[in-house]
Design a protein around this nucleic acid. Structure first.
Length: 188
DNA sequence: TCGCAGATTGCCT
DNA sequence: GGCAATCTGCGAA
């Protein structure tokens, strides 16, 4: 019997890069009616505020990115490239203005059949190995924008094993700020 | 196997 | 008006 322990606000009230690393090995849980979808987080990226030109929050506070300046432990979902959603968790130190961790990849655990139906592919390794893919597999949309992930509801993150080998790489898909090794993943 | 362009919407300049 | 924290399919080698 695995004890279910939801990560609390305190977990996210920390340096954005640190939380990005800490989230590796944790489990993302999505409830759709009685159906439960879950997966272990295997890749994340840190996006900070004013000193990070690649971050949405680097320029100024807008209607879209305002929750990166808001409370930690909530979901920041945005729509991009005309067809993809990306799922982030707001995480920052108390004195930081803004920050969020982009969840880039998970490893499916529960509800794999449901994910296959959502993704219209039966290749397991291709189900959730990208930010746009995992939101599609888990049916995460703008409805989850501003969702509180520290409460047991339709979407939350539970504690898990900390991986021993974390790899830092440049962030993917951006043109500026690529010198920063803020993409984190690990070998299974 | 690899690289590139198309899809397609909302945000920022 | 241009481009984005992406994915997929197609064509070339």
């Amino acid at each position: 019997m695995i004890k279910i322990k939801i990560l609390l606000k305190k977990f996210y009230m920390n340096d954005t890069k640190q939380v990005a690393k800490d989230l590796l090995g944790k489990t993302l849980v999505r409830k759709i009616g009685t159906q439960i979808l879950s997966g272990v987080i295997t890749e994340t990226e840190a996006y900070k505020g004013e000193n990070d030109p690649a971050s949405h929050a680097s320029r100024k506070k807008t209607e879209r990115n305002k929750i990166m300046f808001s409370e930690v432990g909530i979901a920041y979902v945005y729509f991009t490239y005309g067809m993809h959603y990306c799922f982030n968790v707001v995480a920052k130190k108390k004195n930081d203005k803004a920050g969020a961790v982009l969840i880039r990849a998970i490893q499916p655990q529960q509800g794999i059949n449901h994910m296959i139906k959502n993704r219209k592919t039966d290749i397991i390794s291709n189900l959730t190995n990208g930010p746009g893919k995992l939101t599609q597999a888990m049916q995460i949309t703008l409805k989850q924008y501003n969702h509180d992930l520290t409460k047991k509801s339709s979407l939350f993150i539970i504690d898990g094993e900390k991986p021993n080998k974390i790899i830092a790489k440049p962030r993917v898909g951006i043109k500026i700020g690529v010198d920063k090794l803020w993409n984190f993943s690990y070998k299974i």
